[in-house]
Amino acid sequence: MIEDFGSQRLKGRVALVSGGLRGIGLACVERFLAEGAEVVLTDLSSPEDAADVLARLGQAASYVQADVTSEEDWSKVLAAVTERHGRLHVLVNNAGIDLTGPVATTSLEGWRRIMAINVDGVFLGTRTFVPLLAQSGGEVKGGASIVNVSSIMGLVGMSEVSGYNASKGAVRLFTKSIALEFAEKKMPIRANSLHPGFVVTPLLQEGFQRWVDKGVAAKAQDLVDLMSSRTPIGRLAEPSELAGAVFFLASSDSSYVTGAELVVDGGWTAQ
């Protein structure tokens, strides 16, 4: 199998990825680095706990510990990006959590937490970096790029994931609104949302394990097999397959793409 990574299509650009230590976020970091970008990643882990990942990523990657629900932490990230690079061309708002269960037993605390991380985090990341993205966007064809990671659950409903559905639907429409705002103001920033289907990530595995603990299935692999059988392409996605889609939205190949939904779900929502 031939994979054309490392083409240096992002050489000279700076990218920021939230939730960058694992899953889709880490895959995006790795792809951006392979394409020549310098990358700042954020997550909740301490720098000490992130050290092994950072050592593997190399000198072009740097890390800032940050909670995406904290305005203070976003200010800290902005200061770090500005000091190290002085510019930003790509922002990937990826950090997120899930929430499952019947609406009647969903706590207000749980609802507010998923909204804070999945929605407030996207808003705060965007608001914090719009001035720097606008300043840097004129350097590249198509301008700077914001990629907000939503989900197919931001497009279609599913039983007992109402909080997750609501949060990812909010990300979808927030992205369309800011895309129009930037275009109308002639700001060199594009904004698009990514809508993954079922992807083999720690978040998915943890979610499946919770369903097992509730007695829905005997083991997590049974749920993987079930979701694979319901996906037209017949399997779950690998994080690198989503990173390829994010790379497209981050690159000048998508210079005429803004306010769009890029669905990468193996055909799930085509049914």
Rank of each mutant, 00 (worst) to 15 (best):
A270W: 04
L33H: 04
R9I: 14
L99A: 08
D213F: 04
D43I: 02
E72S: 14
T69M: 09
L249C: 05
G244A: 12
L194E: 01
R172C: 11
V90Y: 00
S70T: 01
K141Y: 02
L41Q: 12
Q8M: 15
D98H: 09
M153Q: 14
A270F: 06
A270L: 11
P196D: 11
G142I: 05
K76C: 12
F248I: 06
V39K: 03
A60Y: 01
H195K: 06
F123I: 14
R9S: 15
H195G: 09
P232D: 12
Y164Q: 07
D225S: 04
N93P: 02
G157T: 08
G142R: 09
K186W: 09
R22C: 10
G25L: 07
S7M: 14
D225N: 13
N148D: 11
V149A: 06
G157Q: 07
G125L: 03
V17Y: 12
V92I: 12
D225Y: 04
V216E: 05
V156P: 02
L155H: 08
E109C: 05
V39W: 02
A250C: 06
G36E: 01
M1A: 15
I114H: 04
A270P: 04
A80D: 12
N118K: 13
S159R: 15
S193C: 13
A134G: 13
G169D: 03
G86I: 08
L54C: 15
L180T: 14
W111N: 08
N118A: 09
A27G: 02
